[in-house]
Design a protein around this nucleic acid. Sequence first.
DNA 1: TTGTAAGCGTTATCAA
DNA 2: TTGATAACGCTTACAA
Lengths: 338, 338
Amino acid sequence: MTSITITDVAERAGVSIKTVSRVLNSEPNVREDTRAKVLGAVKVLNYRPNYAARALAGSRSYLIGLYYDNPSPSYVGEVQYGAVKACRETGHHLLVEQIDGEKDTWRTQVESLLRQVKVDGVVLSPPVCDRSPVLDVLEEQKIPFVRIAPAGDWDRGPYVYMDDKRAARDMTAYLLSLGHRRIGFVKGHPEHAATQARLAGFTQALTEAGVPLDPAYVQGGAFTFRSGFGAAERLLNLPLPPTAIFASNDEMAVGVMAVANRMQLNVPRDVSVVGFDDAPIAQSVWPQLTTVRQPVVEMAEAAAAMLIQPRASPPGTRSRMLEFALIVRGSAAPPPLA
Amino acid sequence: MTSITITDVAERAGVSIKTVSRVLNSEPNVREDTRAKVLGAVKVLNYRPNYAARALAGSRSYLIGLYYDNPSPSYVGEVQYGAVKACRETGHHLLVEQIDGEKDTWRTQVESLLRQVKVDGVVLSPPVCDRSPVLDVLEEQKIPFVRIAPAGDWDRGPYVYMDDKRAARDMTAYLLSLGHRRIGFVKGHPEHAATQARLAGFTQALTEAGVPLDPAYVQGGAFTFRSGFGAAERLLNLPLPPTAIFASNDEMAVGVMAVANRMQLNVPRDVSVVGFDDAPIAQSVWPQLTTVRQPVVEMAEAAAAMLIQPRASPPGTRSRMLEFALIVRGSAAPPPLA
DNA sequence: TTGTAAGCGTTATCAA
DNA sequence: TTGATAACGCTTACAA
């Protein structure tokens, strides 16, 4: 069961291993017919270059790292899915590492990882993309990286993101177009970058429509079901309750719906509820949630792709914005005719 | 930025590189003080062996593969989390690959992967753990593997699993202990292995308690919200509807709850609803779902650990069963006093 | 346009 | 108990 090596290919094609190497790495200066011969031999022998040897000898390893830490399992799952997809299309492989623990250990963790296995680049998923010791090491060692939806430090390397603010604005505009004028908003966790952006989009839409913003309609939340539940209780018990509630993630939106149900309020007839994220749960409630779809898989895929073909993105515009989508399902409707 | 190699360590410790290698791989025949010297040098230099060199020269690569395909993102996320955890504890790394597409391409996919990068073993997550071409290749190439919750072929290599049948039995027994006698059951997708096991556990509990099983109380489902919804409509519109419904996963249980809500039935006062899996959604509904927690993270961790330290599991007993847990939350209560 | 030879950083062989 | 030295399969100078 000895595996096929570059030597076998070279012999079969009647050339030197260097020529085979040239063909494999699409280097210039190979005659077309020579190239064809080599490719033929590769095909016949079903040759696959050994990654370890490549990594050891050369400067590339065909390995892409994915550093993550513990957001929701489904987020990680989606990121991984996108990254794997981009990798396999170009014969790369994905190495997944978790960076966790205390802040002062991050640098060491990354240094140690990098020393052990060489990667061609790393995809940084939130919240790792916002840990500056991690970025420090990567920059020092000149290892390319792309961040997914970073919360700040936008000058530190390329990133992929979506426009949270505009998405929130569009969603609010949708609610306004339905006829709502009293719209409640449930904010996210104060430490999350998206929280501010989504709130800003909400207020912008209101301003643009000339609808005054009642501060009582904006309630604090923490991206959890429970916090959405609490915020909804406050909102719906107001003397003049909102006719629609925009929770800044789906988890909280479902909490809002639960409160509505308990108060015998029919969604969307009596009150409209919309969320953000298009998490799996959005389709597992009744009515299904109208929400904003975050292109998580696509962002991860784009990030990995940028690492693999840096030439693809023109210099200067090193970051990529991906489009969100407004997913209209059944949880929002025109307000009751009061 | 030249990295520290085994040669540096050898010089610093005043021994040959072979001796350093011996210490690093805990080989025998090294004097205790020599070992200490080497370890000291490793520490001072903060040396980390280069993976590619190890893989190329030796028989081990310190890389563990995780082959998956596309179950729910959160399942993948959890599996990955457990596997990464086991890996990092022993200095291994996780290589994630997706095996997808048509059945007749699986063999080639795996062969190609294996040829490119040597792994010390692979963790097979559902549904890949049940694709026999994948197992074939692994067996042929004598690459150790551990399957997670396989659906069949229990003689093909070690696996980790949980006892679905017993879990379903326990859950049913819990409902019975609450006083329920008319219990509805929503089956899972017919092609899923767990479906049969869970139904079997349900009927077993009934039999043990001497409670007759009304066939009308067992409804088909498909592990989706919608199928749970449909099954619940049939169940709750029966002339004598059940006082409790056991949906064989959480997704369906939430569908059942949605129907109850629409029918103005209070959960759990009017009807109890329980699920299975302890998916994230179980905590994002109101009341929160009483369910069975699957030890997904632990199974993945155990699987990877078995690969890394094969000696840990005594010969013969190569598979491991992990314990489930009954998670009692608010969705089940004694039946209404009729 | 092609080939030769020297590494890359380990482990394995075999002798000391 | 230790240590030279030869692989491992590839890329990278450097020649031809």
